[in-house]
């Protein structure tokens, strides 16, 4: 028996008299084992799907997270089912207000494409704006485009591949983007309807 082992035991006993815990929490908790939410949904007449593509930079020619502090998510909204051709649906720009809800309940607002376009070099601006999800009346074929969720308004969030690291209370939690929800409001036959759908990959 070495003195050092005995010493360690005594130190351990002294330490336990204080408020410190014997094991520090891991600095980054792993993503949850849950499977997120369905990445497409039909709710009444409204169909929507959402997808995060880790290689989104190929679509824009630049890394929007770096250049504009936004997280781009590809979204499709359409009407499906009996009555789809008669229904009047639109994404009212004043009520649409999409947001991304991360798995821990943190919410990110979407920025209008024209605002994101101003954050990038001029030669990319037009592409960013034209690829943004168009608001207005929904045609029978629906609409597809990108929503740009604002990472810049959260100093405690950092994008790392397909996860967002959220630092709070001295810990950093890794949140898988495909465990998030995209929510928005759609106006259908003059009635506003909240909609949410999971984010696929």
């Amino acid at each position: 028996m070495s003195r050092s082992i005995l010493g360690a035991a005594v130190v351990s006993c002294v330490a336990c008299a204080g408020p410190l815990r014997t094991e520090a929490p891991p600095s980054v908790l792993p993503p949850s084992a849950a499977h997120g939410f369905p990445a497409q949904k039909l709710d009444g007449l409204v169909f929507a799907s959402a997808r995060f593509d880790e290689h989104y930079d190929e679509a824009f020619g630049l890394d929007l997270a770096r250049a504009a502090d936004v997280l781009p998510i590809a979204v499709t909204v359409a009407l499906r089912g009996p009555g789809q051709d008669e229904a009047r649906a639109w994404l009212n720009p004043e009520r649409f207000a999409p947001e991304l809800v991360l798995a821990d309940g943190t919410t990110l607002a979407a920025l209008p494409p024209r605002v994101v376009a101003k954050r990038v070099a001029e030669r990319y601006g037009e592409r960013v704006e034209s690829k943004g999800l168009a608001t207005g009346l929904l045609s029978p074929r629906g609409t597809s485009g990108w929503l740009y969720f604002d990472l810049g308004s959260h100093t405690d969030l950092e994008l790392d591949g397909a996860t967002i690291e959220h630092s709070a209370g001295g810990r950093t939690r890794a949140l898988a983007i495909d465990e998030s929800l995209v929510t928005f409001a759609i106006t259908l036959d003059d009635r506003e309807q909240d909609f949410c759908v999971g984010v696929g990959r």
Binding site: A97, P98, E99, A109, A110, T135, D150
Partner: peptide, 9 residues
């Protein structure tokens, strides 16, 4: 994050 009026948009 959604402003009640959709003011961001």
């Amino acid at each position: 994050a959604r402003p009640p009026t959709g003011a961001e948009w």
